[in-house]
């Protein structure tokens, strides 16, 4: 279903709207949240907060604000980052920069049913290490180009095109 078909349904905020929203995006958002939080229970709390925010503010969203997915992705990332910064969250800051999304796949205890991920594990691991880092920082963790350039020590001017090449590689593997 395209964004254009989805939005009129979601604006209704009824049962069907919830089901569509949840089925299409919950797991993707949870992947992003979990990659930041690294604690399943805490991450599920953040997912819940994220959905409440989306639902509450959905009337204020329109397509001039960008893609719907981008809008909810920002809410998810910001909610997770707020959680990490909150005083009572026992967080090892080092993890934020050193763990990337591929590490989730390496830890079987984090994935209830590991076989689900076998297919994707194969191709995700075929991504160049540089690409894994770049996609992790820019997409999953929401770094700016400047921050990613500093962290990975690559020239600022090449961040955009390097990232483009990496996403192309991913699309080839995924056939999207």
């Amino acid at each position: 279903m395209t964004q254009e078909e989805l939005l009129p349904q979601i604006y209704k905020k009824d049962d069907k709207a919830f089901t569509l929203l949840y089925d299409m995006y919950a797991k993707s958002l949870f992947g992003v949240i979990f990659n930041l939080i690294r604690d399943k229970e805490e991450a599920e709390d953040v997912l819940q907060d994220t959905f409440v925010k989306i639902w509450k503010n959905i009337d204020s969203y329109n397509e001039s604000k960008g893609r719907f997915f981008t809008w909810i992705l920002n809410i998810a990332r910001n909610t997770a980052i707020d959680k990490l910064r909150s005083k009572n969250f026992n967080n090892n800051q080092k993890n934020l920069s050193s763990d990337n999304f591929v590490h989730i796949l390496d830890d079987p205890s984090k994935i209830n049913n590991k076989i689900d991920t076998i297919g994707i594990q194969e191709f995700v691991k075929k991504l160049k290490p540089k690409c894994i880092q770049l996609i992790d920082l820019l997409f999953f963790k929401g770094y700016t180009q400047q921050e990613a350039s500093d962290e990975l020590e690559i020239p600022l001017g090449t961040v955009k095109t390097q990232n483009r090449n990496c996403i192309n590689e991913l699309r080839n593997l995924l056939k999207v």
């Binding site: 992947g31 996403i167 995924l174 999207v176």
Partner: peptide
Amino acid sequence: IEQAVINLSHSVSPNI
């Protein structure tokens, strides 16, 4: 592009 990253993040998500 959107589909690719949705699929990617979907696949690293633990079960909810």
